[in-house]
Design a protein around this nucleic acid. Structure first.
Lengths: 204, 204
DNA sequence: AAACTTACTGAACAGTGTTTAGTAAACCAA
DNA sequence: TTGGTTTACTAAACACTGTTCAGTAAGTTT
């Protein structure tokens, strides 16, 4: 049945149209400041139409999140290519921080925003997030196999490294480093030094 | 003039009444879910009254934030009492993480929420936050003076350690460790191990 | 051509932060 | 004590939010 196929295609296209408009606006204005009405205006449909494709605003966020994680994973695959596990770990860490600093609003909705993860459902949308984590985990597997790191447990290593880089990005994104009364360049340099130091310290 | 004094007192009392109700509700329900109308209902005043004491919801948040930082600083002073700088640093770090895990909504509004810090004003409310940071800085001063840490720069040390503990708490509070598919106890244990490992690694 | 299905929307509901005009009580000067 | 002024407060409105639902018009099938 050609018609049913076409309708299926059109439905997916429409969903994509909504998602891409939403993503653009989340990145430009932030999640909270982007309303369903704003998105509807942008794509020239009624707000109610969006609810024919997404259950609620969170559902839309899940989809954008999936897209964002895919983008991060692509960045990893592009930038973390070294064959040396330690060098690769460094590339991952730096790519992560750079991603966070360059796309603060995207980072926000991936790692800081409250909304998702509350419901156990929506595992598909979360799959790309798992892909990113797995990328780190695989690298750490290689590192620990060769006893290159001072961590005993692979999971503790992952949790530690992730926390370190997330802490750097999150505190910066939320302007908490302001308490240090440094210029923006100084903070950026301190962040770079911090990650450099950290990577040295975890080496065996 | 006794009457003017009393009025002044009453004004401060009223402001305190609002702030304490707000803080209780922020902690119980979270900042976003607590509306000005809810707070007004709780203290049995009209919503408009709150605006006679606070410019807007952010202004109220600043005040609550100040209170929360005071609470954290008290915790530091209680729990980080060792004369050994390294031991004291450990006590600070653990107190911080424990505070974050025990009061997630308070932690949220201190270190994760977007609202404040945007305006340069409001330095008074931010003073307690500086107090907390200074507490860490003083400890690090002692550490680096005796060359006990592997950091060269005091500020980089502060930024690193803070990022580490914030990362642990923030990712946990926002349920991002769910990607690791561990039970809650396992995560908690991994966090403890991570901080233990980190403190060992930064030692000279 | 009639019946059915689909895609969409206008309007409403209940909530939000915030402002303003108005009121009633408290206070002060005569 | 009276009259005027200041203070403390509020009801109601404004402009927004996410979300739902009845209704419509076009597309599809019989």
């Amino acid at each position: 049945m050609g018609i049913a196929d076409r309708k299926e295609r059109e439905k997916l296209e429409m969903k994509r149209l909504i998602m891409e408009a939403a993503m653009r606006m989340f990145v430009e204005e932030g999640y909270e400041k982007t309303s369903i009405r704003n998105i509807a205006d942008k794509i020239e449909y009624s707000p109610a139409t969006i609810y024919l494709y997404y259950k609620d605003k969170d559902d839309l966020l899940y989809d954008v999140q999936g897209q964002a994680f895919e983008q991060l994973l692509r960045t990893f695959r592009e930038k973390a290519v070294s064959k040396s596990p330690l060098k690769k770990l460094e590339q991952i860490s730096k790519a992560y921080v750079q991603f966070g600093l360059e796309h603060p609003d995207l980072y926000d909705l991936m790692f800081i925003i409250r909304a998702p993860m509350n419901k156990v459902e929506k595992e598909e949308a979360w799959l790309n997030g798992e892909g990113c984590f797995q990328f780190l985990l695989d690298c750490l597997e290689d590192c620990t196999a060769q006893k290159l790191l001072r961590f005993r447990d692979k999971m503790v290593a992952a949790l530690s490294i992730w926390s370190m880089v997330h802490g750097l990005v999150a505190l910066n994104v939320r302007c908490r480093f302001k308490v240090m009364k440094m210029e923006e360049d100084g903070v950026r340099h301190a962040i770079d030094t911090a990650i450099e130091d950290y990577l040295k310290m975890i080496k065996n």
